[in-house]
Every structure is written in C-alpha cells, then in structure tokens.
Nucleic acid binder design. Structure first.
Lengths: 189, 189
DNA sequence: GTCTATATACGGATAGAC
DNA sequence: GTCTATCCGTATATAGAC
C-alpha cells in the first residue's frame, strides 16, 4: 500500500482545500485534477459518483481537520472562557495567512451543497454537530451542567461561524476579535 | 413611464430572489431570464456588465428589503431585548414558508461574490453595515451608550446570520430560537 | 488502477434585425 | 428598448486504450 491510496488522498485534499476556499460551484473538477496533478480518470475511479461524492468526502475531511484544531487549541487553557477566547483570537491572528490549514469556515461550502441532495445535507449536519460537540466536551470537562453546556456550545459555534463569514466578506478579522470579547459574558450567565 | 423600468425591475427582482435562494454560481442567467419572462437582450441592455453588475444590484436590493423588515419589526416593542428576540422568533416561525420575501440570509450570496472583485465585496460590506446599523439605531434610541450599542449591534448581526446559516444547512429553525433566548443576556451585560 | 480523448450540455456573452 | 440566433469557452461525465 502507500501509493495505492496516495492518488485518492491527493485529489481529496486538493478538493477540500479549493471547495473551502472558493466554494463548490466555483471550483471545477478540471481545476482539482490540474492542481492535484492527477488525471481525470483517477478522480472518477476513486469517486465514481463524481463531484457530489467528492463534496461529501471533502466537507467531512475539512470538518475533521477543523475539529482537531479546535480540540488541540482548547486544551491549552484550563479555564473554558479563556480557552475559547484564546482560540478565536488565534483565528483572527491567522486570518491574513493564506496557507490552507487556516481555512476554518464551513459556511460557504455547507450552504452551497446542503440543498443539492439529502446525502450532502446530512454530511454537513454531521460536520456541524462534530464541531459544536468539541466545545460541548470542553464545557462538560470544566464542570458545566449538561443542559447549559449543550446550549452554550451551539451558540459558540454559531457566533464563530457567523463572525468568520463576516470577516471573510469584509476581508478583515475585527469581527472575530469582537466575538472573542463576548465569550466570557456568555459563559458567566 | 411605468413599462420603461418594468422589465429591469422584473429581472432584478427575479435575480435577487434566485441568488439569495440558490446562490450566485448555481444561478444561470438563462434561468433568470426564463423565470422573469424577459429576453436575454433586455438583461444586457439594463445590465451591460452582465452577471456581476446584476449581482451588485441584487445584493443591494436584498439588503434593503431585509433592512426594512428588521426596522419594521423592531418598532413593535419598545424594549430592545424584547424587540430583537421577537424579531428572531419571527424569523424562526417563517422558516418553513417558502415565499421569497422571507429570505433573510445574505451569507451565501455575500460569501460567493465578495471574493470575485472589489466592487462586489464593497457592495456586500455596505449591505452588512446597513443591517447592523439598524440594530444600532434601535439600541441608541433605547438609551444604550454609543460604544456599547456599536459593539452589541455587530454581535447581534453575526449571531443572526450564523444561526440562519446553521438553520438553512440543518433545514431546521431551532438554532434561531436558541439565539433568541440569548439576546437578553447579551444586552444586560 | 492510470491516463487521454472525447461527448454533450450549458455557462456567459454578443450581434444585429426589428 | 426588445428580441432571437449564435459564438465560444468550460462544465461534468464517459469510453476505452494501456
């Protein structure tokens, strides 16, 4: 093995990166195979259902990577409010950088592909759930009551995703900073 | 006059509706002229710069309509927390309905078109600003200090847009309800 | 499993009659 | 100002050699 899954991985990584950055409809399969230096035949060999199947795999991969990043960064502070604030400020800091692993927004891709088909919507729902659940577990670990943690973790996900959208549109991370400042208020009530 | 601007208006309204609902790249000009029952020649007569010019006009129109709806609904309650909560719960209620004037999310369209060109990004920024400013003016009217109002109004816009995105992806308005419940906490701190 | 050539449809845009 | 016919590029997808 090794080379066996290598082509598939290259295609998938490239697709996930381009889909997240430019969106689903704006990204052509030709662009994906060019950037990943893979032939089109391999794409359809590994993803027989074409672009939609690739989208499901891509949103799932992107979600996992984001989830891992959240988890890792939340572990740096024991205080949950501080940890989450710290994480969001890091997002703001890395906003200018262009390297692909800093792409932490799922909204564009999810909003585009969810309406296409139920299977795509389900994949998006799962990814959203996964991210929110990472905040949830942090809050539980820190002693928050279950109900409160459930409520707050969803709100945090919504605020971050909303602030990311606004920041991307405005091309300016100040909205993320503003949201970071609200976290402690949110958690202490 | 009357018939003179009628064609333009029909094209623009249809475009704004389809762009908001399905997104920019997923909506073809052919679809717009078919749905608006206008010939393609008229589209390029009224919007010589084609799809991009239409997108600017559409996002601006959509923003104005949303802004008016926010303003109108916030006027129903004198207490700002109550007014905003009431407005968000209305959004949740109207979530199932399909008529076009209930499309109150700008994120999909804005995230798609902002990166295309600066003129499109600027139009999106202005629209976002317009909406947030409506919350701002409500807060000022109700006696909030300027700085606090500025801060909170942005957060409210972010939370609503984020909750709308999540609700659209999940096809379920519960996230809007959850956000509505947080408004009073946000305003009383 | 890999790769290229090709099929087919549709995208945005334009020309030019009326 | 209105409308149709058409251009050209690119999109997704497939066929079939290797």
């Amino acid at each position: 093995m090794g080379a066996k899954t290598d082509t598939r991985e290259k295609i998938l990584n490239t697709a996930a990166s381009l889909f997240q950055k430019n969106g689903y409809h704006a990204t052509g399969l030709n662009e994906i195979i060019r950037e990943s230096e893979s032939p089109k035949g391999s794409l359809y060999y590994h993803f027989p259902n074409g672009k939609e199947e690739l989208a499901i795999a891509a949103v799932t991969l992107a979600g996992s990577m984001i989830q891992e990043q959240i988890e890792e960064k939340l572990a740096r502070d024991s205080d949950p409010a501080q940890a989450i604030k710290h994480y969001i400020l890091d997002l703001a800091d890395s906003f200018e950088e262009e390297n692909p692993d800093n792409q932490v927004s799922l909204s564009l891709l999810a909003l585009e592909i969810a309406p296409i088909r139920d299977s795509l919507r389900d994949a998006c729902k799962q990814v959203f759930e996964l991210c929110a659940d990472t905040y949830y577990r942090k809050l539980i670990t820190c002693g928050f009551p279950e109900e409160k943690a459930k409520e707050i973790s969803s709100i945090i996900f919504v605020m971050i995703e909303g602030a990311m959208s606004v920041s991307l549109v405005r091309n300016d991370p100040v909205m993320l900073v503003a949201v970071a400042e609200q976290i402690s208020i949110l958690l202490n009530n």
